[in-house]
Each structure stands twice: as structure tokens, then as C-alpha cells.
Amino acid sequence: MPDETGPGPSQRLSDDTLLEMYRLMLLSRRLDERAWALHRQGRVQFHVSAMGHEAAQVGAAFAIKRGVDYVVPYYRDLAMAIALGCSALDFMLGLFARRDDPWSAGRQMPCHFSDRGRHIISGSSTVATQVPQAAGLAFAIHYRQRAGLVDPQDATQPRLALTSLGEGSTNQGEWHEGMNWAGVQGLPMVCLVENNRYAISVPQTEQMAIPSVATRAASYGAQGESVDGNDVLAVHAAMHRAAQRAYRGEGPSLVEAHTYRLTPHTSDDDDRSYRSREEVAAAGEVEPLVRYRQTLLERGLLTPSRVDELEARTRAQVDEAQRAAEAAPEPAPEEADSPVLAPLPEGLT
């Protein structure tokens, strides 16, 4: 089975892993809901939501070596960040823009992830900029392996670069240029397109003349696959195939996860002018968290009492993270002055 030969995780998910994926989707969802509530109460300035995207993001994260492979996410990837090991407190510190916000020390908007230790690259808000960068990370992986700069047995070394973005953002030149570079050089890059049918207000039908972003992969010599993005296991399976191709040196892949954004674009948006309430309600019927819970209940991995227990535990986690973040100190205003340029290393003058 080629599935088992790569350095990444196995395609077969253990019961513990299946439950862990649920737990992380749940945590992301409850953090997200709390952030909306805090915003309504005027206690935080801004929130951008992953609600509806949790299956796409958690399914993707579990197909790579989490914390080892490079990930270049985008603003909607809260569940991905959580699945990669970022904590509830990390998120809350960013939401409250505290000094100890590990992603930007209060400089960036919330959900602009960055974690050197976990190989999560800092992103801007500017869409698609991360795609050529992901190609560059994948290039470096390739380069370092070939130049013998890394020990092939070293399990701490990244073997692929995963990047993600929305379907609308695949109309940026940077997306096309990054995909082409990865394709022509056969780089270990996986691009996850979280297709929620809208770029803010503009529907996919006004963004591109094709129904599936995955077909664009062919132009770049990449493998393209579309998948039900509300089914965490389906996303995982597709992402697993993509990751394994990357690990085996077979070049880049594009996985398009069809999903829906359950909330307005951000806390600054009002989606009533461009989406009918019926459409939003219908999407709620097939949303990924409830659906996965149902799957786990049917498989006997969850029971109603276990569901309640997880809810209570998650709520306590969210409460505690919020409490700690609200109590955490603000940065001093003058901290805005730095750091702008990295100091020269010792001995370099």
C-alpha cells in the first residue's frame, strides 16, 4: 500500500484520532461562537470566522505531519490552527490583542496565525500572497533534501508545504503563478481551496466560468480533486492522497473542499444583501460538526452522554481561555515601534 510508505500519518484513523478530530472541530466552533458573542458585546474589535469550514480544515490538517510540515494558512483557518496545535488561549490572546498574543503580539487582526515552532508561517490579510511562498517552502524542502542538508531519517523536518485559501482568491495572479511554479518543478506542495461559494458577496459564478476550481489544477500539471468539504473523513481521504503524492515526490496537488460559510464574511460584514436566509438555513442543515457527530454516534464512538461531557469540557476550556486572555496585559503603546528590522547576528558588523 503506497498509503503506508510515506512519512506522513496513516490513512487509517484510529478511534482515538477520530474522536480527537471531533474534539478539535468542537473547540474551534465554540471558540468561534464565543468570539461572535464577545464582538456583539463590544468587548473585541473584530472576528473572522471558520464556522462551516471545520471539516475542511481539520480533515486537511490530519492528513499531514502536524507541527512538522509547513503550513501557510489564511484568515479563515481557525480550526486548522487549532488542529495544528495552537491553543484556545493563543486564539483568545489574539482576539483581545494582548501583548502575549503569540501570533503577532497584538499587531495583526485576530486569526492571522503564526507559529515558528509549529511551522505555521505568518500570513497577511492580502489574499493569495501565500501561494508562491508555499511553493518556495516546498522548493526549499526539495532543495535541502537534494543538497543533503537534511538527514532523510530526521522526523522533525518538513516534507511538504500545505497552503489554503478561498475559491475567490484563486483568481489572483499569485495563485496561478505559485501553482505553476510548483507544477513545473514537481514540488511537494498541497493547495487546499476552501470553496464556500462566495468571495465576500460575489458568488463563484461571477468569479470564474467553471464550476470546479479543481479543474484548474490541470493547467499546472497538478492533481486536482473536488471533495465534499462538510465531510471531514472525505476531506481527510482526499488530502491524504495529495499529501502522499507530495511525500513520494510526485508533485503538487489541489484539493477543493466544497463547503459553506455559516456566518457573514467577518464581523464587519452583513450578508443579508447578498445571500437569502433560506440559503443560509439550508447550509446549516448539512453543516460539518453536527454531521460528524452523527457519524460518530452511528459508529458507536460517541454516546449522547459523551457528547454532553465533551461539550462541558470544551465550554470550560473556552471560558478559561477567555478569562486568562482578558486578564492578560495590553502591550504598551510604544511597543508599536518595534521590531522592524532584525538585529545583525553576533559577530556580524
Binding site: Q45, G106, P333, A336
Partner: peptide
């Protein structure tokens, strides 16, 4: 000030 752009945190923003 000569920094890449305005920070998000309100205190730093006002500065």
C-alpha cells in the same frame, strides 16, 4: 512612525 503599518491593538493604534 516608521513601522510597516498600523497595529491592531487599540493602544498601539492610537500611538
Amino acid at each position: 512612525p516608521d513601522v510597516p503599518a498600523a497595529p491592531f491593538n487599540r493602544g498601539m493604534f492610537d500611538y
